[in-house]
Amino acid sequence: MSLDARQSRTARFIKHSIIILLVTIWTLPTLGLLVSSVRDKDQLTTSGWWTALITNSQSEVFRLPVAADQIEVADGYEIRTQLFDQGAQNRVTSWGLRADDLTANAPDLEAQFNKNSTLLVAQDGTVVWHSSEKFTHKRGPRLFFGADYPPRFGLDNYREVLSSEGVGRAFINTLTVVLPATFVPILIAAFAAYALAWMDFKGRFFFLAMIIGLIVVPLQMSLIPVLRLFALIGSVLDVPSKSYVTVWLAHTGFGLPLAIYLLRNYMASLPKDIIESAYMDGATHFQIFVKMILPLSMPALASFAIFQFLWTWNDLLVAAVFLGQGEDKTVMTQQLIELLGSRGDNWEILTSGAFISIAIPVIVFLSMQKYFVRGLLAGSVKGG
C-alpha cells in the first residue's frame, strides 16, 4: 500500500471517529432521558440514569407501627409489617435501631429489641416484632436498614402524565397555536421571497438587508413593545389583548425574517431561463409564482415548516406572554410545569412528559426529513 493510500485511510478513520464521537455526545442526553422516563420513581430520585442496569445499595429509615396494629398470638403479641411494596424484588442486607449502627444485625436473624420483645427483619422486608407483654406505645420506634434495589422499569411515569387532568386539553391547545403559527408565516414569506428574488423594484436590497438584520434581534427585546401594541389595539377595538389571534400574530412576526431569508435564497437559485421563458410567454408574476416557483420550492418550504413547527411546539415564553392563562389556553409546556407542583416535587415526570411532548415533532420531522437538507443547502452557494 502506497504512502498516499495509507494517509488517506488514516484521514478517513480519524474523520469517521470524530463524527461517531460527536453523534454519541449529541444523543447521550436523549438516551439518558429515555432511560429515566421508564425507571422507577424512587430509583430515579436517588441515582443517575447510568446506574439503571446496576443493583443499587442504599440506606433507609422506617417507622414501626403503633400498638393498635398488634395481634395476639399463642405466646404473646406481634406486630407485623412490610418494608417494601408488594411484588418488589428488594433485599435487606442489614438493619439496626440506630443510624450509626446500621450493620448491627443481619436479615432473617431474630435480635433482642428490649427485655420483653424481639425483632426479626427478613431479607424480603417482612418485619415481625414479638413481645411477651401487650404493646402500649403510641409512636412506633424507627428502624434503620440497608437494602439492595434491583433495576425496576415501567410505564408508571407515562401513565401519570397522560392521566393527569388537563393534559389532553393542553395538547389540543398546542395544536391550535402551532398549526396557524406555522402555515401563516410560510404563506406570507413565500410571496415576499418571490418579490425579493425575481421582481425588480426600488429598495429591494435595502428591504433584504433589513430582513437579515431582524434575524439577529433577540425575541425578548420585542416582547414588551409588541404586547403594549396589542393592548392598545385591543382597547381601541374592544377585543381581548391576549388570545389565540395575538399569539398567532406574534409567532408570525417572529418567524417571518428567517422564513423570508431562507425562501428568498432558494428561489433566487432556481434556473433563471425558465422564469424568463414563462414571462416572455405572457405569464404574470402570480402565475409564475403559483405554477412554477411554489412546486419547485417545496424543499425550502418544508425545511422552514419543520423549524417553525418545532419552535412553536416547544415554545413557553411567547405562549405565556401573548396567550395568557386558563384551561382553554394552557399549552403543553405550561401544563408540564403545572404538573410539577409549586415546589417541583414531581420533577421526575418531566422525563416522560418530555417524550410525550416530542412525539408529534418527531413524526413531523421524520415525515419531512427528505426535504430538510435539500431546503437548507439550496441557495447557500449561489444567490441572485
Rank of each mutant, 00 (worst) to 15 (best):
Asp238Gln: 13
Gln334Phe: 07
Gln70Lys: 10
Asp75Glu: 14
Leu196Asp: 00
Met280His: 10
Leu377Asn: 14
Trp49Ala: 09
Leu336Ile: 05
Tyr279Gln: 12
Val177Ala: 04
Ser117Cys: 12
Phe153Ala: 06
Phe84Tyr: 07
Ala378Ile: 07
Phe254Ala: 02
Thr126Pro: 00
Arg152Trp: 09
Ala305Gly: 13
Glu72Gln: 11
Trp95Cys: 05
Leu34Cys: 12
Leu366Ala: 12
Leu33Met: 14
Leu377Thr: 15
Lys134Ala: 14
Leu179Cys: 06
Asp156Cys: 03
Leu316Phe: 15
Arg228Glu: 12
Asp100Trp: 08
Ser2Trp: 01
Phe13Asp: 07
Met332Cys: 04
Thr330Asp: 06
Phe171Gln: 03
Val38Gln: 02
Ile358Tyr: 02
Thr81Phe: 01
Val121Asn: 02
Ala231Ser: 14
Ser303Trp: 01
Phe153Tyr: 15
Leu323Met: 07
Gln220Thr: 07
Val178Ile: 09
Thr55Phe: 02
Ala189Arg: 05
Gln308Thr: 10
Gln287His: 06
Ile274Arg: 14
Phe144Trp: 14
Leu270Asn: 09
Glu160His: 09
Asn90Ala: 12
Met221Cys: 09
Gly234Phe: 07
Ile233Glu: 09
Ser47Leu: 01
Ser2Val: 01
Thr51Tyr: 14
Ser243Gln: 08
Phe62Gln: 06
Thr126Met: 09
Ala283Cys: 13
Leu109Cys: 11
Ile71Ser: 15
Gly146Lys: 07
Gly253Pro: 00
Tyr371Trp: 08
Thr174Val: 01
Gly154Val: 09
Leu31Gln: 05
Val61Tyr: 09
Val373Leu: 15
Tyr244Lys: 03
Ser277Gly: 10
His16Lys: 07
Pro141Ile: 11
Arg204Lys: 15
Phe144Lys: 05
Thr174Ser: 13
Trp95Ile: 04
Pro271Ser: 06
Lys382Asn: 01
Leu214Ser: 06
Phe191His: 02
Ala268Phe: 06
Val66Lys: 10
Thr51Met: 13
Gly168Pro: 02
Phe304Ala: 04
Ala189Gln: 03
Ala319Leu: 08
Ile14Phe: 13
Thr182Asp: 00
Gly168Asn: 06
Val373Asp: 11
Phe207Cys: 13
Asp328Gln: 08
Ala67Asp: 03
Pro65Trp: 00
Trp26Ser: 15
Trp311Arg: 13
Lys134Ser: 15
Val167Pro: 01
Tyr244Val: 01
Tyr371Pro: 01
Ser241Asn: 13
Ile349Ser: 07
Glu276Cys: 02
Phe135Ala: 07
Leu339Arg: 03
Thr55His: 06
Arg9Gly: 00
Ser131Ile: 00
Thr10Lys: 13
Phe144Asp: 09
Thr30Ala: 15
Asp40Leu: 05
Gly384Tyr: 08
Leu296Val: 08
Asp42Pro: 00
Asp315Gln: 05
Arg80Phe: 13
Asp273Met: 08
Asp69Phe: 12
Ala359Leu: 11
Trp50Asp: 11
Val177Ser: 06
Leu232Asn: 14
Val247Lys: 04
Val247Trp: 01
Trp26Lys: 09
Leu323Glu: 01
Ser36Leu: 02
Glu110Pro: 10
Leu219Tyr: 02
Gln325Pro: 03
Leu296Asn: 14
Lys138Arg: 14
Lys272Met: 04
Ser222Asp: 02
